[in-house]
Amino acid sequence: MGCLAICTQISLLIVQSDSEYESDSDSETYVFFKDRPQWADVKPLEQDDGPDPVVAILYADEFKDKMNYFRAIVQLDERSQRAFDLTTEVIKANPANYHAWHFRRLVMDALNLDYQPELAFTHRLAEANPKNYQIWHHRRVVAEKIRSPSNELEFTATQLDHDAKNYHAWTHRHWVVEAFGLWDGQLDYSALLLQRDVRNNSAWNYRYWILSKTNGLDSLAKIDEQLAFAFALIRKAPNNESAWNFVRGVASSRRFGDTPSIEAFCTDLSKSPVHYPYCLGLQVEIQEEKALAGNRDALLELEKLCDKLGNEVDTIRAKYWNYRKVTVRERCPQ
């Protein structure tokens, strides 16, 4: 169910030209189920939408035909090869039909069908529908059933080559890496993606996750190593929120006072004639830590930083920087 995606879809009502649909309506080659001898024994089941249907979809005849027989076969609970083939047709016509996906798996389990070919099936569907929840869910079930990560890393890498921030592909990759313990080489993979696009927040997050799962942040030395990695990329693109958040993340188990390289880096970067808002924003937090410990000069410095951000550097957030100033002041020991 695409809760998050659906608001996109509804706005496309008028102009949508759905490639999956186009290929589906190839009526020259389509043989209706009522004309297929092997289905003669099944009575199609129409949907009953009542006398005044709401959001009535003007289904294509082919679509209605498939669904009529799918409804019938589900009510017969027939777990057969022809039922399996029918789910293939129904899913191709509507890959979001979670009901058909579930029934397909019931049939496969009943007939003890091989799940391996499902990899190719989902691969083809994912190419046309990279953000469909049901396809990715099925892919996970397949990997679980065949108890093999098979080529899941490669598959997700291919998907990420098309869209390096595809949330579904990342979700699948995280799952497969953790489920099958495929940690090796993943830090390098994150570095590769960041080399391609230093603003890829998914890749920064992946890097953080791999580190946190592989004892990569459990000493100050290791934290410093990752900070150095981030600092080098921030120097190339200082207005990159993702990299600054990564700095916050790797240092989050310590106080800023324990990781002095962060303040030193910010101070150095601030010597530039250009003001970098994310740099100033992190300095606000460094000063906040000191101010809350009773350092009055730090509070004054924080107030100056917030004023500079709100009045000059980051004016769209003027109210926010004022809020920060006020709240920190209130929380400071008197």
Binding site: M1, I10, L13, Q16, Y21, I57, L58, Y59, P95, H99
Partner: peptide, 24 residues
Amino acid sequence: MCLKVLPRSMATLDTQRMTLVYFA
């Protein structure tokens, strides 16, 4: 208008119709 009929290309939302009613 959405509440009345939807074009055939919207068949991919067939298993989410209630959400469409809700949005409209």
